[in-house]
Write a protein that binds this DNA or RNA. Structure first.
Length: 327
DNA sequence: GCAGAGT
DNA sequence: ACTCTGCAACGCTCA
DNA sequence: TGAGCG
């Protein structure tokens, strides 16, 4: 007898696991009407890619129990009670409050799908891994356009960032943020703490700013920035700061995705090209464009020297905000 | 989306 | 037995 | 000192 609005739960097989998906027909993305089950199928379609992006990292979840138009958004650090035993976690310490958090630590795709069952849309991993949570192995360059910054400015800054990386001998892995900017990731040797990685990130940002003074700012305070400038947010390398992972969907109506791209694509794409609707075909064709990231390890010593030089030359000690996110 | 607390 | 409520939180600057 | 900010 016909009944209640919601359709029955479905079981999805993921590797060795069976994951139950409740409310598979609930609309999560209102623009085209993709459902929770569509979101599950999206993450399955980029399975290796999302697992590579999250592997062994503490991970924050952005959950939307009623879909992305549903009003409430839940930021979650601690894994909820009642998670299956095969969902791995990593313990973090927040010394200021003498508190700890057991965060999701992805090692297999089923854990991602479980998180989607828990209404997770966005995955925000740390830039360090379980083996040494206090030593980042990823330097994140966040090209964050102001509200009036045109896309072609983002593209031009990306090329200059690429050029500086080349000069340093670093391999950068670009992706759209899923918002309006770009991220470039660099695998680094986990030999420095968050403070130093962030110092290096600032030194790099200032070098790009020097080369494009009319386009780029490294000024942290919004009110002191030209809204048409591109802000290089070096603070995204601070402890407990996270940004959306490669292949993470974003919580907006069209379900944009943070999409890995090739450097030669920078001039030919716009961020909204990549959505939950378009990414599966792209991934099937190209595979994981970030698959090689672990093989190109950069030593940040040169950046630390730049930082020391800048600090010696009298640049004031910059502020160090923490926990939050941005695009 | 779900556990835990409150009623 | 139900309904309600959390579910993140650092360090810095400016007023 | 507290509110605002990423």
């Amino acid at each position: 007898m016909a009944s209640k609005a919601s359709s029955p739960a479905v079981e999805v097989e993921v590797g060795e696991r069976d994951v139950r998906i409740s409310n598979p027909d609930r609309v999560y993305f209102p623009a085209r009407g993709e459902t929770k089950l569509d979101l599950v199928n999206y993450y399955l379609s980029v399975g290796d890619g999302i697992v590579n992006a999250l592997r062994e990292r503490p991970c924050m979840l952005h959950r939307f129990p009623k879909g992305v138009g549903g009003g409430d958004k839940v930021h979650q650090k601690r894994i909820p009670q009642g998670a299956p035993p095969w969902v791995d976690t990593v313990r973090l310490t927040f010394p200021r409050w003498n508190r700890t958090a057991d965060e999701l630590c992805v090692t297999e795709l089923a854990q991602v799908i479980w998180a989607v069952q828990m209404s997770t849309v966005e995955f925000h991993p740390w830039n360090s891994r379980r083996a040494d949570v206090e030593k980042p192995d990823e330097w994140r360059i966040d090209l964050d356009p102001g509200p009036d910054c045109p896309w072609d400015r983002v593209q031009r800054v990306a090329h200059v960032a690429h050029e500086v990386l080349d000069e340093l001998g670093a391999v950068g892995w670009p992706k759209t943020s899923g918002g309006s900017g770009l991220h470039v990731y660099v695998r680094i040797a986990p030999e420095w703490g968050f403070k130093d990685v962030r110092r290096g990130a600032l030194a790099f940002a200032r070098e790009v700013e020097r080369r494009m003074p009319d386009d780029v700012t490294t000024t942290w305070w919004r009110k002191d920035r030209d809204p048409a400038d591109l802000f290089i947010d070096y603070n995204q390398n601070a402890r407990d700061h996270t940004i959306a992972a490669a292949y993470s969907v974003r919580g907006n109506a069209i379900g944009t995705v943070s999409a890995p791209i090739r450097w030669d694509e920078v001039d030919h794409v716009v961020p909204d090209d990549f959505t939950i609707a378009t990414m599966p075909a792209r991934y099937a064709e190209l595979g994981d464009l970030h698959a090689g990231i672990d093989d190109a390890v950069f030593e940040i010593d040169q950046l630390i020297e730049w930082a020391e030089r800048d600090e010696r030359d009298g640049a004031p000690e910059p502020p160090e905000p923490d926990a939050a996110e941005a695009d």
